[in-house]
Each structure stands twice: as C-alpha cells, then as structure tokens.
Write a protein that binds this DNA or RNA. Structure first.
Lengths: 187, 187
DNA sequence: CGCGCGATTGAGTAATTTCAAATCTAGTGG
DNA sequence: CCACTAGATTTGAAATTACTCAATCGCGCG
C-alpha cells in the first residue's frame, strides 16, 4: 500500500512504519483520465500532486490563447501551481493529464499539519523545493546559452521517452519554438 | 547588530532574542569590493550568501566564453550556486560583485546544524526555496510567452533601479538577447 | 586633451515566425 | 478489410526578427 510514495520519500528521509502511516494519512489518492484537469486556470488550487504514474502538462495561457508548456510532470514528480497554492489565489496555470494518471494529493492545511507534526517531512519538502529551483535555473540557462536545436537534443537525452509519449507540438512549446521550427530542426 | 538579517528572517518566522543569537552565530559577515568573486566557476562552493547591500551577478559561461546572466542578486536576496553547494561539487556558475557588496554567508555544515537546531529556520529556508522556485518558473514563462521587448519592459517595471546600476549589456544578457538588439528595442 | 568603456548605428546574414497547403497516421464505422 | 476523418506533422514561401561584425558616438576620468 502506497509503496511508490513511501519509496520516494524514503530516498531522502527514512521513516518508521508509524511515521509513514502518519504521512499517508495526509494524502488522498486519485486517478484521472486523459485530458482531465487537476488544476484549471482561474480556479482555486487546493492541492499539490505527486505523480505515481502517467503524465501531466503544466501550462500557461498567454493573451493569444496559446498554451505554453511550463513543465511536464512525469512519474515521481511533484507538481502544482505553487504560487496560487501557497497564496490561496486563483491559478494562473493549468495542470492537465496527457495520459491516464495516478496521483497523490495534499491540501495546504494537511501540508502544514504534516510538516508541523513531522519535521522530517519539512526537510523532505525543502529538499524537493531546492531541487525544483535548481532544475528551473538549469532551464533558464538553456534558454540563455543554447540554440533551439541544442535544447531539443538536451531534452531528448534527458527524457528519451517523452518523444514517444507527447505530440511534437507540445515539445516545441516546451522548447519555446513554433512546431514548424521544431519540425525543421531534425533535418 | 545584524538588524537587516533579523528583519528579513522575522518577516517569515518570528524569533526570540536567544533564537536569533543562535541563528546569527552560524553566519559570517563579509564585505566585498566591486568585481570581487564570491564564487568562481570550477572551484568549490562553500557558502550561501545573503545580500545586505550592493549587487551581485550570477553567471554561466558557455563554450564561446560568453557570460550569461542567470540572476542579479540585490538587497535581501539569497544566492549561491545551489547545485554545487548542496552536492559539494565544483561550481558551474560564478557569483561576482557589480557593486561594493555586504553579505552574510553560511556553510553547508552550519546550515544543517542551524536547521537541525531550530526547526523554524528549516521552515524559513523552505519558504525561500519555494519562492525561488516560483520566481524561476515565472522567468521561464517570460521566455516562453513574451517577446524580448516585453521581457525588457517587465524587468524595468519590476526593478526600475537596475537600469541605473548595471551596464545595458548585462541587462541584454539577462534577457537573452544581444546588446545590439536590446539597444534597438527602445526606439 | 585624449583614452577607454559602454552604447548605438549600419549593413549583411542567419534563424524563426506566420500562414497556407500538402502529407501522414491512428482510430472508427461500414 | 477498407474508406474516411480528425489530428498531427511536414513542407513551402514570404516576412519578420535577431545576430554578427564593424564603425561610430558619447562621456567620464586621469
């Protein structure tokens, strides 16, 4: 029961059975169909999600109604519109399933209770936040120093399975180029 | 003594005098001249820095020896090459003073001791890491959805003082365009 | 005054976008 | 099994945007 979640957490902070039971009691488990939204732009963001299996896209819709891919969330990733989640404001991002997806979710109140009741978990989330910050910074560096083609090759190397799993137009959006340009890159 | 640091921390977690004395005992205080490096690419990263006053640039040097501005660190900012800091690996980034700068610094060992000895501080750093992550994500979104000109205007609005304080070529680098292109934007 | 750095301008080149059309592919129903 | 359709991908061509390299400008400081 909850093996994936436990393994994932214990990769950073070891837990006793009782501690993990306490942790697990703060999460809900949920399955979502392809195309289903876990977060809708403009609505309240009640949860942070941990992806057990499947694939999500985190997107930002600009004035011209184009969806920019802020992030793909795959197995073992934590994702949300964190800004809206922590501040209890309306989402500026959307989180939607690209595949049938299984997640755990936690509310802000449970998140706070969990951290307060078990400091190890606060440490765990600190570690996750740091890694997320570092990853975002890497992505910024890729925009500053790499060509579209190089960013594409880097993405391929890092997540070879992505190409099989999502339409290329989404890859293009993630890389910050038009789908036509992406198509012309690998010639 | 240490007023800036204390106020900054207490904006998130209130502290007693004893608690703050404990916190302060883990930090060193340091002044650095313009052009001085706090982190050099290739070297070990021994500290995270809190900027009391002054201005730093965090840069990444690519194959063509261009320095890309990953971030400006101004008053009240925490900055480091976090990846290298946490993993005790060599820096891939440099952190250099653009102005005479006053900082507090903390080593990884003291950081761990501080968090272990005062959970409030772990909470504080979690909060900081989250905000950093969110800020980086916003910057990614600006690359995905805004033109160079729009990114420039957004930066101006957010940090009006920057233009006065740093050469425009650095602003260009931060925005991801050549200095010539930036120069042509405001015509 | 003149040096040096940063900023701007000009001209040619390269990369990317846009819009439109053509092609490919997977899934559906007959 | 085949035909058909919707969505995804590719291709073409013109227009835009950005880059590079070189030259010039502007200004503060010794």
């Amino acid at each position: 029961m909850h093996q994936k979640l436990r393994q994932h957490i214990e990769a950073i902070v070891p837990l006793t059975d009782e501690e993990f039971a306490f942790v697990a009691s703060h999460f809900s488990h949920q399955k979502a169909k392809k195309r289903e939204f876990l977060i809708q732009e403009g609505q309240k963001v009640n949860h942070v999600f941990f992806v057990v299996s499947g694939l999500l896209k985190l997107t930002y819709r600009d004035e011209m109604a184009n969806d920019a891919i802020v992030s793909f969330a795959m197995e073992d990733w934590w994702e949300s519109d964190y800004q809206a989640f922590y501040n209890k404001t309306n989402a500026s991002l959307s989180l939607q399933c690209l595949e049938p997806t299984e997640v755990y979710s936690i509310t802000l109140e449970d998140y706070k209770k969990l951290c307060a009741g078990l400091h190890k978990m606060e440490h765990f989330f600190l570690e996750k936040a740091n890694r997320g910050h570092i990853a975002s910074q890497q992505r910024i560096i890729s925009f500053l120093t790499l060509s579209a083609r190089e960013r594409y090759e880097q993405l391929l190397k890092r997540y070879p399975s992505l190409l099989q799993r999502v339409p290329k137009s989404l890859i293009a959006s993630y890389l910050g180029v038009s789908r036509e340009t992406l198509s012309r890159l690998y010639n």
